[in-house]
Amino acid sequence: MTRITLVEGDITEQQVDAVVNAANSSLLGGGGVDGAIHRRGGPQILEECRRLRASHWGRGLPTGQAVATTAGQLPARWVVHTVGPVYREEEYDERAELLASCYRESLRVAAELGARTVAFPAVSAGVYGWPLEDAARIALATVVAAGPGPVGELAEVRFVLFGAAAYRTFEQVWQGIESEGREGQD
């Protein structure tokens, strides 16, 4: 059974098999989580991302997809890069499915690598503008729904939230999902 945990902290410091990067489609670094992972991980990550761009992902990684590279100098083995959607209320349904796909595809890639532990940020909840509570609901519900498939092989899926407000929001959403699950078992 996969354990889902929430921690407040820095995703670049997580000792897990795979760290998920909220990347931009270029795969060449950026701001927020993406910039932090590239800076802390060192040039090896960028080198592999450039190779990916020169081969299969010449036009960039599409939104909702995921691909892995080395973790360079991070305390993880791999970085799974995924591109979240920019929030637009008028295109909510389509973009919410793309956000859920980020989590499903990242789990699939991590499982194919043989990862047992995976750390996620709150994909799209930063500069891409996704409302935090809704981002938390989509993230947590998608990971729960993904089991026992690719998630079944994972010992832990960890959500690493930057700041107390993000942590509290994910914690409240997670408590709601857990209580709904308990009610469904009665």
Rank of each mutant, 00 (worst) to 15 (best):
M1V: 11
T2E: 03
R3W: 05
V7S: 14
E8T: 13
T12M: 04
E13K: 15
Q15E: 11
V16R: 01
A18W: 06
V20F: 00
N24W: 06
S25C: 03
S25V: 04
L28E: 07
L28P: 06
G31L: 11
G32V: 03
A36G: 09
I37N: 06
I37W: 06
I37Q: 10
I37H: 07
I37G: 06
R39A: 10
R39Q: 09
G41T: 05
G42E: 04
I45V: 11
E47Y: 10
E47F: 04
E47A: 15
E48T: 03
C49F: 09
R50C: 05
R50H: 04
R51F: 01
R51S: 07
L52W: 04
A54R: 15
W57R: 07
R59W: 07
R59V: 08
G60C: 11
L61C: 10
L61E: 01
P62I: 08
Q65P: 13
A66I: 00
T69Q: 00
T70A: 04
Q73W: 03
R77S: 13
V79E: 02
V80G: 03
V80I: 15
V80S: 03
V80Q: 01
T82G: 13
P85N: 08
Y87T: 07
E89M: 14
E91M: 15
Y92I: 08
A96C: 07
E97L: 14
E97M: 13
L98F: 02
S101E: 15
S106I: 01
L107S: 02
R108K: 09
V109Q: 05
G114K: 14
T117C: 07
V118N: 00
A119D: 05
P121Q: 09
A122W: 00
V123M: 03
S124D: 01
Y128C: 10
Y128L: 15
P131W: 08
A136W: 04
I138K: 02
A139N: 11
A139E: 05
L140H: 07
L140V: 10
A141G: 13
T142I: 12
A146D: 10
A146I: 09
A146P: 07
G147I: 01
G147E: 08
P148K: 13
G152C: 13
G152D: 13
A155Q: 13
G163R: 15
G163H: 14
G163A: 14
G163S: 10
R168P: 03
F170H: 11
E171N: 13
W174V: 00
E180F: 03
E180D: 15
R182N: 03
R182V: 11
R182Y: 01
Q185H: 15
Q185R: 15
D186C: 10
